[in-house]
Design a protein around this nucleic acid. Structure first.
Length: 478
RNA sequence: GGGGUAGUAGGGUAGCCUGGUCCAUCCUAGAGCGUUUGGGACGCUUUGACGGCGGUUCGAAUCCGCCCUACCCCA
């Protein structure tokens, strides 16, 4: 047998593995002839659909979904000084309508604050209108100058979920930040992706924010990937865009705002964190196909087996499982590899022997084979899918634990980063020391106020200046 | 930001320096037929490409220019 037939590059060659799996598993076609723009294949898009449906379900508890325009007039975009500084090098401008130059240039949103907040100024009148919690899921454009990478660094972010909230007080907005962080933790827990939550250093916060809380995960090569951010905007934008409300005593007050976002980087994390040498491994909750039934048809039993498989499929589908019956003219082994590559959590095998014995064989994508009695199939499948989720979550958490370490001086820190680790150090919080850490290690400060089960929130002497410092995450980043 | 290398069929390669029916070759690609089918089947037949635009030339995958895209290295 040819062991190499159809093999992926091994996952420890992560970059090759990643590029390869995107087209082999039909997630993205990278051949679109514009830098930084990629095409979602139907299968990739189906994964996206299920992931974003989960996000919608979480947000819909107390947010409303809306939709704002893609184009932002120049004068609105240019209102908030810090915000402009943060984005002006990355903005695409629409300058013509047909052949006619436009009087007012239009920006393709790199993010939507300046599209949404002029409208919020009209919508918010009184304290009774607050809190206002709205989100949208849209595409955004950023003229990235660094190397682009599918799902990770894009010129068109096709799947940007951004929420924008308005509150009466700074404290309420702060509480909303915490609520959003909890919501993101829940979201990623559902995807079985462990995260590190920290407060970004001041120079790395969102342009125009009081502070930024970031959600990061660790990729297989040890680099951290930012997969969510939550910003307390204070009154920066409300003052710029005149978002005011009348409080209970009849006074006009500037509103306090937050915004928070997640992009298709969550899909990059989903694929990368769980995948293995055979291909994708998808959590049952978001797998487009949760169960694939592979009928084993031999000679005369063909019709018999197919009929049995169809009734099995129908029963499972009615029970609410996303089920696929694979009746293609291929050998069973070829189908196994096909579905394993695509990350289907559970494979059911049904052949003459099983039918005669009243059994169904189930093979978990995470490893292991079980045999169900045909009549118990529904509860059996439900149980095994739950086991798969647990196994995935545990495996991913162990990977994260392995990648985290604590160091107390610069040389070991550099060594740890070179070794593909994310390190916890003590840092005084000062910019000069922060710059020194980043320069000496070629790494980045992810943040302080770390919230992770694996990172103790100790205090200690700053790794550079020896003054009192707080636990700080340092790593190489995407 | 600075440098380097490359782009040939669905994927992988050769050909380029030394222009000339060379439109080659392999596959996990496609189509067709037949035999197969409990972990990637096999045989036969067949389809299909020189990144884009322009230039040089009797003639360009090959030489020149510009553009686009990708990958690698350094900051």
């Amino acid at each position: 047998m040819d062991e190499d037939a159809g093999a992926l590059p091994p996952k420890h060659q992560f970059s090759e593995w990643y590029n390869n799996i995107l087209w082999r598993a039909e997630i993205m076609d990278v051949r679109y002839p514009v830098k930084g723009l990629y095409v979602w294949y139907p299968y990739g898009f189906a994964i996206r659909k299920h992931v974003y449906q989960r996000l919608r379900d979480l947000l819909d508890r107390d947010h409303q979904e809306a939709l704002f325009p893609l184009l932002i007039p120049e004068q609105e975009f240019m209102k908030e000084a810090e915000h402009i500084k943060g984005f002006e090098d990355e903005v695409y401008w629409v300058t013509h309508g047909g052949t006619t130059p436009l009087d007012v240039k239009l920006a393709l949103r790199p993010t939507s604050e300046t599209a949404i907040y002029p409208m919020y100024a009209l919508w918010v009148r009184s304290h009774a209108d607050l809190p206002l919690k709205i989100y949208q899921i849209v595409n955004t454009f950023r003229y990235e100058t660094k190397q682009t990478r599918p799902l990770i660094r894009l010129r068109e972010i096709t799947s940007f979920k951004e929420a924008h909230t308005v509150h009466a007080t700074w404290e309420e907005a702060q509480q909303q930040v915490e609520t959003a962080v909890r919501l993101y933790k829940e979201f990623y827990n559902g995807l079985c992706i462990p995260v590190m939550i920290s407060k970004r250093p001041d120079w790395d916060k969102f342009p125009g924010a009081d502070y930024t809380i970031a959600v990061d995960t660790i990729m297989p090569n040890g680099k951290s990937l930012q997969i969510g951010t939550v910003h307390h905007l204070g009154d920066h934008f409300s003052k710029t865009f005149e978002i005011k409300y009348e409080d209970a005593s009849g006074e006009q007050q500037y509103a306090q705002q937050t915004c928070y976002g997640i992009s298709e980087r969550c899909i990059a994390a989903l694929l990368s964190v769980h995948g293995d040498d055979k291909g994708l491994v998808l959590p049952p909750k978001v797998a487009p196909v949760q169960l694939v039934i592979v009928p084993i048809t031999i000679g005369k039993r063909h019709e018999d087996v197919i009929a049995s498989a169809r009734s099995l499929e129908q029963e499972l589908r009615q029970a609410g499982f996303r089920t696929k019956l694979d009746t293609r003219e291929m050998r069973p082994g070829a189908k196994y590899y096909w579905w394993e590559l695509r990350g289907v959590p559970l494979r059911l095998e049904l052949g003459p022997r099983d039918i005669d014995a009243g059994k169904v064989i189930a093979v978990k994508r995470t490893g292991g084979k079980v045999s169900f009695d045909r009549e118990d199939i529904k509860s059996g499948v439900a149980g095994v899918l739950a086991e798969i989720s647990d196994a995935m979550r545990q495996r991913a958490e162990e990977h994260m634990k392995d990648r985290l370490c604590s160091v107390i001086s610069i040389e070991p820190l550099t060594a740890a980063l070179n070794d593909g680790k994310i390190a916890v150090v003590h840092w005084c919080g000062g910019r000069p020391c922060g710059d020194a850490i980043e320069e000496k290690t070629n790494g980045s400060i992810l943040g302080t106020d770390v919230r992770s089960a694996y990172v103790p929130s100790t205090e200690g002497a700053c790794i550079i200046c020896d003054k009192p410092g707080k636990a700080t995450l340092v790593g190489r980043v995407y």
